[in-house]
Design a protein around this nucleic acid. Structure first.
Lengths: 153, 153
DNA sequence: CAAGATAGTGAGCCTCACTCACTATGAGGA
DNA sequence: TCCTCATAGTGAGTGAGGCTCACTATCTTG
């Protein structure tokens, strides 16, 4: 039986490899991870204010301003006036932006197919169950984590 | 059966959650992910030159200079002269640094225990196998991706 | 010994986070 | 109505972590 620490290491390796793969692919499209994340959220919500994006992405309003600046300059989104609230702007896809969002969605699906292709059904099922388990444990740790400072000392 | 795209999403969620957890824990110790990574590599290799760290971490030499600056300033490492090559410096743990490295190792083991605790043996085995599978597929994609990238330039 | 490789760093640039201070606007209560 | 407080967004400034390019000091090798 493989050691648990080894499995965790492998999981972390996967985290890294996945990150590399994604940021590489995004860079080819002239995007960064954060900007892609914004497009992703935007695709899921339709035109929204920057405030909404900030909350969705768990990031400060100022950071959204910067990301939208970049995405607007590279032609993925535009800022449109909010009808009924002159303080707010609606972040809106350009044609290029929505094409990119669609391609991200299909890329996601293709990556999933590719990664799990040829994985025996029972292994897949257990893998998914294992993910559930780990996520749950992690959520617990997060909740308890505030008192759990002792672990790292 | 869960959809593959859903499982991929969950995997990405896990990536994110794991990253949050780790960077939070590290911040409590006055470290960042990159600096901790450097300490980790240093622990695995003993005193080495910055060049070696740059290669190990897949990062430019300049970046290592910055990370070592930070770690030296916060008292985790020192720069020692290399006996036999006066161009080079040996990055070396302070007492604080090696204590931290040890605590990172044991923290890693404890986290592994915690995450997999209560996972039925067969699920664990399949989970590990699934990780293998995904890593392999990703490696393939990476290998193929590089040629693709080269072509598009 | 002259040439070329290598180790490290200064300078300068980018992205992505943050906070703080500020403007403009919206909304609600007296 | 008008005054107050809340909210949306941005300018300014900071810090970490990447990068390249140019440069010094030092090996290494022909």
């Amino acid at each position: 039986m493989r050691e648990r620490t080894g499995t965790l290491s492998q999981l972390l390796e996967l985290v890294w490899a996945l990150g590399e793969d994604m940021s590489g692919a995004l860079a080819r499209d002239g995007l960064t991870v954060s900007r892609a994340h914004l497009l992703w959220e935007l695709a899921a919500r339709g035109p929204v204010t920057q405030r909404v994006l900030a909350d969705a992405m768990n990031v400060s309003a100022r950071t959204i301003t910067g990301l939208v600046d970049g995405l607007a300059q590279t032609g993925f989104v535009t800022r449109e006036p909010h009808p009924g609230d002159r303080r707010a702007t609606l972040v809106t896809f350009t044609a290029k932006g929505s094409a990119m969002a669609e391609s991200m969605v299909s890329g996601h699906a293709q990556l999933a197919e590719f990664l799990f292709a040829g994985m025996p059904r029972p292994v897949y099922e257990a893998f998914a169950a294992g993910l559930d388990h780990v996520m749950e444990r992690l959520a617990e740790a997060g909740a308890a984590g505030k008192t759990e400072e002792a672990r790292s000392r």
